[in-house]
Amino acid sequence: MQTVRMALNAMATRFEFLLHGDDAVLLRGAGEEALAEIKRLEQQLSFYDPTSEISQLNANASKEPVRVTPRLYSLLRKAAEIHNETHGAFDVTVGPLMRCWGFVRGRGTWPEEHERKEALTKTGMDKVVLNDAERTVAFRQPGMALDLGAIGKGYAIEEAGIFLREGGITSALLHGGTSTMLAIGTPPQNTDGWPIGISDPLDDSQMLTSTSIRDEALSVSAPRGKGFQKDGKMWGHVIDPRKGYPVQGATLSAVAHPSAMICDAISTALLAMRREDGKQVQQKFHGMRTLCVYDDAGATDLVSLEFHSTHPTNQ
C-alpha cells in the first residue's frame, strides 16, 4: 500500500488530497488530473479574474441575457434550487451586501441604513432569470453579481472526486481549506471510514465532537474568523441575504451528505437559520446529517440530526 499527498492553492484556499493505492505513479497521475480540474474550475468561476466566465456574466447580464456553458448553467440551476429549499438563506447574489458591509476586502464595518437598503435591492436569486431553453442568465437589476464563493469550493471538490474515481482511486480524502472534505472509500486501516474531528467554535484548541465519513462529503461553517465588534457584540462575515444583516443563526454548522457541493451550500445556509427551519431543511435532502451549535445567552446548545449515526452504507 502506497500513499501520495498532493496540494494546490486555488479559490483563495489550499486544497489537499491524501490518496492510498498500490501504485504511487498512478495515484499521482490521477491526482494531477483532478487538481488540474480544480484549477480549471477556478478560472471559470473566479469572481476576481476578469476573463472568467462568471466575470463575463456579471459584466453583461444586467444589460441582456448571457449564454453560459452547460456546466455553469446546471450549477446555477442547482444554486437556485438550494435557494428555494432554504427559503432564501442560501443566495449566490449576496455580493452587493458583502461589499456594503465591508467584508469583500476588509474586516467589516456597520453600513449606513440607505446603503444596506440599496444593497438589498441588488440581492436575491429571485432577481436572476434562468432561461433553460436558451441556456441564458439575466439580472433584473443593474449592479447585481453572482459570487459562487459559498458553493464553488464544494463543487470543485465534488468534481475532483469524480475525476479521481474515474482514474481508479478507491481510497482518498480530499479537502479544501479543511472546511469542506470528501471521502472516497475508507482509509486502509479503518473500514468504518475517515475519522473527522470538529473543533469548538469558541475555542479552536478544544474538540467539540467527531464523526466518520465514507463515500460522503462533510462541510463545516462558522461566521468566526473575520468580523468586527459593535455595541459589545461580534458581527461575523456571513450575511443573511434576506435581511441584509450578519447572520444570527447557528454559530457553527456541520453537514454530511454524498454531495460536497450541497454540504458546502447548506452549512452556510444553516448559519442564517433558526433551529426549526434548520431541521426542515435537513429533511429535504435524503441522506443528510447535520450538527448545529447555537449560542443561548452564553450557554452552548448542540443540535445533532443523525450526525453521529453511522453513515449510509448504500452510497
Binding site: 505513479v25 498512478l26 495515484l27
Partner: peptide, 14 residues
C-alpha cells in the same frame, strides 16, 4: 510541477 503521468483503471488505457 507535475509528472505528466495519466492514470486509468485499465492497463491498455494507461
Amino acid at each position: 510541477k507535475e509528472s505528466w503521468r495519466r492514470a486509468s483503471p485499465s492497463a491498455d488505457r494507461v
